[in-house]
């Protein structure tokens, strides 16, 4: 069975006017894939990501994550799955401003109840992997965008998740750091075999991934195999 299996996912927002965002999404993502989801704004790609990340519920259909049906979970179960299975990377980094880099990275383990010392060691290890150990005790506002995103990646990785969900990971970065961050994700996929799903609207970013899923008006459009990284004429980021 695939790691992620979506069948006929429907989602409607009822904020005043009903808005049918996802109209029957069928999608399979295998373990170890490096996938991007592309679409214009309003296409429903963020909603799809939220559902994949168990941050939001869906109305009908089924979502199996690693063989488990993800439906009508209690908040506690959802939190537990998120904590153990999924690592998040956000466009705006979403680091906690009053915590140092290493404290931010530690946070998921804190909620797992890992002892302080072990937590700290692990966090330092992951920061070191990201080449950020000299910055471990700096606060987010003392770091550059690329550094912040790397802290966020370390935080996503520390629970050793099976999936990394990245929502516009390069959206707030310049092209040089964008390349670095995408390179980092690619390396994680190749070396550690982590399944990575990137949501983006930039062709250049999507081109770095092995598979591009186009989403349009709440439906899956074309699914491009992109192992040669030549979509968009092999374009460079930005």
């Amino acid at each position: 069975m695939a790691l992620i299996e979506l069948k006929g996912i429907n989602k409607t927002y009822n904020n005043g006017q009903p808005l049918h965002v996802l109209k029957g999404i069928d999608l399979q993502i295998e373990r170890g894939e490096f996938v991007s989801i592309m679409g214009a704004s309003g296409s429903g790609k963020s909603t799809l990501l939220n559902i994949l990340g168990i941050l939001d519920n869906y109305d009908s259909g089924s979502y199996h994550l690693d063989g488990t049906l993800i439906k009508d979970l209690t908040e506690k179960q959802a939190a537990d799955y998120r904590n153990r299975m999924i690592g998040f990377i956000f466009q705006s980094f979403n680091l906690i401003g009053f915590k140092t880099a290493v404290e931010n990275v530690e946070l998921p383990l804190y909620y797992q109840g890992v002892p302080r010392k072990k937590r700290h060691e692990l966090a330092m290890e992951y920061l070191d992997k990201m080449g950020l150990s000299p910055w471990a005790h700096h606060f987010p506002n003392e770091m550059s965008g690329g550094q912040k995103q790397r802290v966020a990646i370390a935080r996503a990785l520390i629970t050793q998740p099976q999936i990394i969900l990245a929502d516009e990971p390069t959206g707030a970065l310049d092209s040089k750091t964008s390349v670095e961050v995408m390179g980092l994700l690619k390396q994680l996929n190749k070396e550690d075999g982590i399944t990575i799903i990137v949501v983006t609207h930039e062709g250049g970013v999507a081109n770095e991934t092995d598979k591009i899923i186009h989403i349009k008006d709440g439906m899956i459009g074309e699914i491009e195999e992109n192992t040669r990284h030549d979509a968009w004429g092999g374009s460079i980021i930005k």
Partner: peptide, 16 residues
């Protein structure tokens, strides 16, 4: 709100 949202996203339960 954002901070609490982040905490929730990375695995804090509502009870926590």
């Amino acid at each position: 709100t954002t901070e609490i949202g982040i905490r929730r996203a990375i695995g804090a339960t509502p009870r926590q």
